[in-house]
Design a protein around this nucleic acid. Structure first.
Lengths: 253, 253
DNA sequence: GACGAAATTAACCGTCTGGAACATTTTGCG
DNA sequence: CGCAAAATGTTCCAGACGGTTAATTTCGTC
């Protein structure tokens, strides 16, 4: 499905821009009001403008990178103008940082839906891994933003307290599971939740981030829905194995 | 060590350019010859020029991405000129593709040093995983080139037969191990070498590619030499577990 | 309704950047 | 040597791109 992407360099096209942003519940009484504005005139709607810009910015930055994305292209895909971007976000970097934060927020918000309270530690962990794997798959634009940020040595992310907070809270679930598992004796002692998170992220992230090169070399087979389910269960198996109490106390650094 | 990177935006500096490329074994008889050229004049050395350009190109593309890298910056870090880049590589994309190929070649060349002939399948696999993990760590610029290529949907890699060949040969070792392990009954049946390679790559690659964001959020702890050894052994454990014959023949898709 | 602040439009600018044109020198070869 | 081809140096440019200035309109509020 994805194999022929047919890269369109300049897709500043189509999508006739509506003259103004419609406020939520006034489409009905718009007729009389709007006609007065038809010649020249507009409605103000700062929030909608900002949201519009941000969502397009995520698309564009995710697609072309920080320096690859073009402010004028972003503006073109928006219902507003380039000037507004500078008005609200200062400069390109400012927009990028906000877009990055926004991408993180959206994804972390989705994660909070996962409820593991009722499950045994083992089942909870399996569920968490499985969920994370799927969640990454369904948010490729977020993955791409993180890839790009990594290329930039995370220098923008470092400054963003917003993002650090979001991520630290994301590891809470894992910490709980570990604690419960250790307490019940079904997990090995001394587990490091961060290291475990590393393992889970590595598989889930790589699966999306490196799909293009991997499938270019080895074919798309591994990325069919069926194959992905297998891969995912392998990942779950591997992670569960890492938390199991060591059978023999022989030490092996 | 790495935490304060102190980004220098324009490092087009220092490094006095020698007037010409010295051929390998003529530094000695250079005195008489060279003095005639001192005013204006140069030696030709196409191969050295190409190599010089490519190595700088890898640095720059890896650091700033395809669109972030600047031809004139690349030229500046070279002992030759912008003109030569276009002379030998046509345009920016051409240079990028060659740099990508070069990066792959260098890394794959390093991999051939690994000899697993004498080891049991299990030991061989453990060794391969361990080696791959380290090898990725010691070639961050390669990792970054691949990250960048992924952001570009692998569209350049797709066209390069060179790279596909290099990579397919890279999986040969793994295929051998799997076959031997299955034959000896120490590995489970029906292993997919590509899927296994996916697992190994995921950990090894992510470890380098996502270090910036990961350590920005969770700290550098996991990336100390000691911690990396632990992580690596976890990865080895996890992979080995994946190839072990299933203890109970209960089927679990 | 008037008025100041916020939002939006429209036009403009200086620089950076990929790339090309043209000139000159070197090198292999008969 | 002489000559053509390859390699290198020098100079310049057209368009792209990030960003700005100034004018206009809308909106909340007194």
């Amino acid at each position: 499905m994805f194999q022929t992407v047919n890269f369109v360099k300049k897709n500043i096209l189509s999508a006739r821009k509506p003259l103004c942003y419609q406020h939520s519940r006034e489409a009905d009484l718009a007729e009389t009001e709007e006609k007065k504005r038809e010649k020249r005139g507009w409605r103000q709607n700062p929030d909608a403008v900002k949201r519009d810009i941000l969502s397009v910015a995520i698309e564009e930055f995710a697609a072309h990178g920080l320096s690859g994305a073009r402010i004028h292209s972003i503006a073109a895909k928006t219902r507003t103008s380039k000037r507004m971007i500078y008005y609200y976000f200062g400069d390109k970097k400012g927009l990028y940082v906000r877009a990055l934060e926004e991408a993180y927020s959206e994804v972390r918000a989705g994660e909070t839906e996962l409820d593991l309270g009722q499950l045994t530690p083992r089942d909870a962990l399996a569920r968490l891994v499985s969920f994370t794997f799927d969640h990454h798959r369904s948010h490729p634009e977020f993955i791409r933003m993180v890839m790009i940020e990594n290329i930039h040595q995370a220098e923008n992310l470092t400054g963003s307290e917003v993002i650090r907070r979001l991520n630290l809270s994301a590891i809470k679930k894992l910490e709980d599971i570990c604690r419960r598992g250790e307490a019940e004796g079904v997990f090995r002692k001394g587990l490091d939740p961060v290291a475990l998170h590393w393992q889970i992220s590595a598989a889930s992230f790589f699966n999306v981030s490196n799909r293009p090169t991997f499938s270019a070399i080895f074919g798309e087979d591994l990325f069919s829905d069926d194959a992905q389910i297998k891969i995912r269960s392998q990942v779950v198996d591997a992670i569960l194995h890492l938390v199991e109490p060591r059978p023999k106390p022989g030490e092996e650094s």
